[in-house]
Amino acid sequence: MSDLKDRVKAATAEDDQEPQQSGVLDIAARDDHLKWLQSHGTYFTDALPRHVDKAHFTAVALSVLPNLKNCTNQSIMTSLLACARFGLEPDGRQAAIIPYKQTATFQPMYQGYIELMYRHPAVDTVHFGWIREKDEWDFEPTAPSPRDFRHRPRVDLTDEERGAVILSYAFAWIGGHRSQVITLNRQQAEEIRDKYSKGYAKAIREEKNDSPWQTSFDAMWAKSCVRRLVKVVPTSTELTELINADDDADDTSAAPAVIRGTVVAREEQGPGEDSPQEQGWPTAAEPGSGAREGGEQE
């Protein structure tokens, strides 16, 4: 939305008018998370798509605020409004809000991409999956769809017994027809990381271990696979904007903020203040663990 920048300014201006308000919103110390959210509720509800339940979004946002106790008002508002703008819950599954010292940062997850794909009227279902070493599967790209791909997980075995993950895949059903199957093995995911991730390159240069590619490789592997699916399904302006926001979040040295061209820039930080707090990144969820995936295994 073009007026999202104005919403952030208006919301943070209200906080700045409070007496003895510091530059950091110490939400945990104030112990009034819900009151703070309710006082800014109109900004979120105006940004939320109509199909998203406002009370549920507020409840999810409330649950993440304690993790952002050292983050600034502006970055918290910007990240929550980004979630609201795309209609994604900041639950660590559709999206996450990661604290980088005093800056809260919006990060979409692979389930968030799938959620936005579902909103296109031509998309029937979207499926993402992991293939493990002992699973039964076959992929023959030259065979007619849907006989070109088959995956039968070993449901009689635990994940550990099934072996290590060797491949991620994603596909969609569109108007009764299955899309191309996108596959991504570990080596290909590492190549994407090395070629495109500015955050990972920065972590390597600075000899740090704070890039999500280092702390939550599977989550980034899954998201990279689903992002490739975007190229073969009906797209939308909203989905394109989510990709831009995702790229901006990865570029930790960039001045642009979370939604390119619509949200205020990140605030100035001192040396060493751009590292995620420990345990900040959620892990990639296993297929069938509650995320909206759609479709049955073939």
Rank of each mutant, 00 (worst) to 15 (best):
251 D>C: 11
36 W>E: 10
191 E>K: 06
168 S>R: 06
210 D>Q: 04
231 K>M: 01
115 E>F: 03
6 D>Y: 07
298 E>H: 13
20 Q>I: 07
250 D>V: 10
123 V>N: 07
212 P>Y: 08
51 H>Y: 04
63 S>F: 03
150 R>H: 12
113 Y>W: 12
43 Y>K: 08
207 E>I: 02
166 I>A: 08
240 T>M: 09
230 V>C: 13
5 K>C: 01
223 K>R: 14
61 A>Y: 01
76 I>Q: 10
144 P>N: 07
112 G>C: 08
93 R>W: 03
81 L>R: 03
238 E>C: 12
112 G>F: 07
56 H>M: 06
60 V>C: 06
197 S>C: 07
264 V>I: 14
129 G>Y: 11
74 Q>I: 14
180 Q>M: 10
75 S>G: 02
126 V>W: 05
17 Q>P: 00
207 E>R: 11
78 T>F: 01
212 P>C: 09
146 P>W: 08
127 H>L: 08
115 E>Y: 02
222 A>R: 09
78 T>H: 03
163 G>T: 03
108 P>M: 13
188 Q>M: 08
91 D>Q: 02
270 G>S: 11
7 R>E: 04
3 D>A: 11
221 W>M: 10
290 G>M: 05
73 N>D: 12
52 V>S: 01
22 S>I: 01
57 F>H: 04
195 K>D: 14
252 T>Y: 06
151 H>N: 08
6 D>I: 12
233 V>N: 10
159 D>A: 14
19 P>S: 04
228 R>V: 01
264 V>M: 05
120 H>D: 11
153 P>V: 07
250 D>F: 01
165 V>R: 09
62 L>P: 10
136 E>N: 12
68 L>K: 05
54 K>T: 11
224 S>C: 10
93 R>Y: 10
198 K>F: 09
292 R>A: 12
282 P>Y: 00
295 G>C: 05
178 R>A: 00
293 E>K: 03
213 W>Y: 10
44 F>L: 12
158 T>R: 09
274 D>F: 09
240 T>W: 02
16 D>V: 02
234 P>R: 10
178 R>T: 13
132 R>N: 11
161 E>F: 02
185 N>D: 15
275 S>D: 15
59 A>C: 03
50 R>D: 14
171 F>N: 12
79 S>N: 03
94 Q>E: 14
117 M>H: 06
87 G>P: 04
52 V>C: 07
274 D>H: 15
83 C>K: 05
296 E>A: 08
109 M>A: 11
175 G>H: 14
138 D>W: 00
143 A>C: 01
43 Y>H: 15
156 D>F: 12
12 T>L: 00
21 Q>K: 01
275 S>T: 14
9 K>C: 08
230 V>R: 13
26 D>S: 12
250 D>C: 06
68 L>G: 07
32 D>N: 13
280 G>D: 06
216 S>K: 13
38 Q>K: 14
207 E>D: 15
97 I>T: 00
75 S>C: 02
257 A>R: 13
12 T>E: 07
228 R>L: 13
51 H>S: 10
173 W>C: 08
112 G>H: 08
136 E>S: 09
16 D>E: 09
204 I>Y: 06
62 L>C: 14
125 T>E: 14
231 K>R: 15
215 T>H: 01
220 M>C: 13
72 T>R: 12
247 D>M: 12
149 F>D: 02
134 K>V: 00
89 E>Q: 01
195 K>S: 15
186 R>Y: 00
150 R>A: 04
192 I>N: 07
